[in-house]
């Protein structure tokens, strides 16, 4: 009996101590982790698609969040000709090697895409990873209206897939399509937040 109590007490204390320690560390590192993620995961993509924006240097800070159900999406504001007229946000789909994230920048006035870039992917190096490393696939979206479903040419759409990386190409297309849905659902809120940013 005494042994039993001792086992329970030791494990409970150990687990409580570990849990407490991790909670403290997690809280302490959370802001740093978020800024690192922005800098290394989304940052390079955003800066390449907003290359001509006026606020290129501060674009990572010009952001707001919209919570929709369980998901929280970060929106980055692009300023063109002194006016905040574009937002970029991330959407994802399942690729060949896991989740694939796509950053989509859209012009708020015309609903046309300014640029698309792959942010995170676990695709096969040298095959699916070309969707991220080479611009051919993503560049096809530039200038197209976002509010429509996209598909690859093999499925009757307009987007030419990367040969040898069909699954990855379809994932990029699916992610852009889901970005369109997010944009459609949240547009009133986006406009409101961007308006607040301008004012």
């Amino acid at each position: 009996m005494r042994e039993m109590v001792k086992m329970i007490v030791v494990i409970t204390l150990l687990a409580a101590f570990s849990g407490g320690l991790l909670a403290v560390v997690r809280d302490a590192t959370a802001p740093q982790i978020e800024s690192q993620k922005l800098k290394f995961v989304q940052g390079p993509t955003i800066q390449s698609i907003f290359a001509e924006a006026d606020n290129l240097d501060t674009v990572l800070n010009d952001r707001f969040k919209i919570v929709d159900g369980d998901t929280e999406t970060n929106f980055f504001i692009g300023v063109y000709d002194g006016k905040p007229s574009a937002v970029a946000f991330e959407a994802s789909a399942v690729g060949f090697g896991g989740p694939l994230g796509v950053m989509v920048a859209v012009n708020l006035d015309t609903d046309e895409m300014i640029g698309v870039g792959v942010t995170t992917s676990a695709e096969t190096p040298g095959i699916g990873s070309r969707a991220k490393d080479e611009p051919e696939l993503a560049a096809q979206f530039t200038g197209l209206p976002l509010l429509q479903p996209f598909s690859v040419s093999a499925d009757g759409g307009d987007i030419d897939a990367i040969s040898g990386a069909t699954v990855t190409s379809k994932a990029v297309v699916a992610a852009v399509t889901s970005a369109g849905k997010i944009y459609e659902n949240l547009k009133p809120q986006i406009l409101e937040k961007v308006g607040a940013f301008a004012g």
């Binding site: 991790l22 590192t29 982790i33």
Partner: peptide
């Protein structure tokens, strides 16, 4: 429990400072 705690610590610290 001990090992998992330290591993999670490493993971958090690495994310924060060596992303």
């Amino acid at each position: 429990v001990v090992i998992a705690t330290f591993v999670t610590l490493v993971e958090l610290v690495m994310q924060a400072y060596a992303y």
